[in-house]
């Protein structure tokens, strides 16, 4: 399961970022921020080749010694980043995909809320709940 889940706005500022364990929060912020480099690279590469029919899932952005960073980008260029512990080898690509899909659905729900101002940080409890379900449960 994920150790960090982030939603990043089109303009690359974080809309939502949560990580466990909390003491490493800063490190995850740096990791997610740096991963935007690869996200942008992949988006532009995809844009060149395929045009509009593109895969939202960007796959493994880059591995580090400890974590694997996966990316996903919505059609409105909102990015989702999931960081998974490298030692967690049981996680397959398909599971990551389904996590992103779930995240995207929940994000869509948040956006559908007429009281939510797009561009504001996400504070939805429902979204938080979905994210919690995908995070590593640590005591």
């Amino acid at each position: 399961m994920a150790v960090c889940i982030a939603v990043i706005a089109k303009e690359n500022y974080p809309l939502y970022i949560r990580s466990v364990p909390t003491q490493n929060e800063l490190k995850f912020h740096y990791t997610v921020h740096t991963s935007l480099d690869v996200v942008e690279e992949k988006i532009s590469a995809v844009g060149k080749s395929l045009g509009d029919q593109r895969e939202l899932y960007l796959g493994l952005l880059y591995p580090t010694e400890d974590y694997k960073v996966y990316g996903y980008v919505t059609n409105s260029k909102v990015k989702f980043v999931i960081v998974v512990d490298s030692s967690n080898t049981s996680l397959r690509d398909n599971e990551i995909r389904s996590m992103f899909r779930k995240l995207h659905n929940s994000f869509t729900d948040v956006m559908c809320n007429p009281f939510h101002n797009p561009g504001d940080p996400i504070q939805s409890k429902a979204f938080d709940g979905i994210v919690s379900g995908m995070m590593v449960q640590t005591g």
Binding site: P14, H29, H33
Partner: peptide, 13 residues
């Protein structure tokens, strides 16, 4: 870079 993209924790750090 952190400021322009609004990453608070890295900014603070």
């Amino acid at each position: 870079s952190y400021v322009s993209e609004g990453w608070r924790l890295p900014v603070t750090h």
